[in-house]
Amino acid sequence: MRFQPTPIQAKDQALARFKWYELMVHVFVVVLLVSNLVGQKPTAIGPFIFSGAQLLFPITYIFGDVFTEVYGYGASRRAIWLGFFASLLMGGFGLFMVWIPPAPGWPADHQRAFEIVFATAARGIVASLAAFWVGEFVNSYVMAKMKVWTKGRALWSRTIGSTVAGQAVDSLIVSFGLFAFTLPVKTILIMAGSGYLAKVIYEACMTPLTYLVVNGLKKVEGVDVYDEGTNFSPFVKD
């Protein structure tokens, strides 16, 4: 007999009772931080060239889909804030460690390599944080609303639909945040559009894995949250 979790209201959930939620949040934050650290390196896959961030960062949206689909918008909201503050701390500490003088004998080429990894400009930190924060909340909101509208059917439409919305906002904010007033608007739009298209295709290709994780978690956790009556403000804790 196929397991069918009982649909329940998001506000009735206590996240602490779930077996896998906290571990997944930790993994989500680690993936987010690593994607920021390795983002500078370009990688060639066949004729296509991607940055490390383009390869890893979309995984955070998959996590966001899983959090919202299984545990509800409130659970996703908590994960987004944790990821936001973790990224803020990493960026701030990275700049501080680059700023303080190195010890005597520290080779200049080592210092340069350290700066390449950690000396993200303040503008880049602000643009990345803003894009992440807004994009993830848009993704989670659309995911939660579509689940109610579709009555829990057609998960693929929600994972792809939420990514289409969230990544559009993310790509525009980070592209204009990084390159406004330094590159022509047309060039920025092409860059944003190229990255956006790649991220949406990435998410679509990962749909089978998302189905597997979502169905497995619903069975193990015994929960299937529908965000009916949820306060969707990013600043409210249910």
Rank of each mutant, 00 (worst) to 15 (best):
S175L: 07
R112W: 09
P107C: 13
R123T: 15
K147N: 05
E136T: 10
K151R: 10
I125P: 00
R158C: 05
R123L: 15
P104K: 15
G105Y: 03
S157H: 05
V164E: 01
F114A: 12
T120L: 13
V148K: 06
K145H: 11
A131C: 15
G135S: 10
A168N: 02
L129N: 14
I173P: 02
A119R: 11
G166K: 02
I173H: 02
S162V: 03
G124N: 03
M143Y: 06
A165K: 03
G124A: 10
V174M: 06
S162P: 07
Y141N: 09
S157Q: 10
S157V: 10
W156C: 04
F114L: 14
A131H: 11
I160W: 02
W133E: 09
G105P: 04
A165R: 01
S175G: 08
W156F: 13
A103V: 10
L155Q: 05
A144R: 04
Q111P: 00
I125E: 05
W149S: 08
L155A: 07
Q167C: 09
T150W: 07
N139R: 01
L129Q: 10
K145Q: 04
E115Y: 06
I116M: 13
A127L: 10
T120G: 06
R112S: 14
M146N: 10
V126N: 08
R158G: 08
A168R: 00
A154C: 01
S175D: 05
L172T: 07
W106L: 09
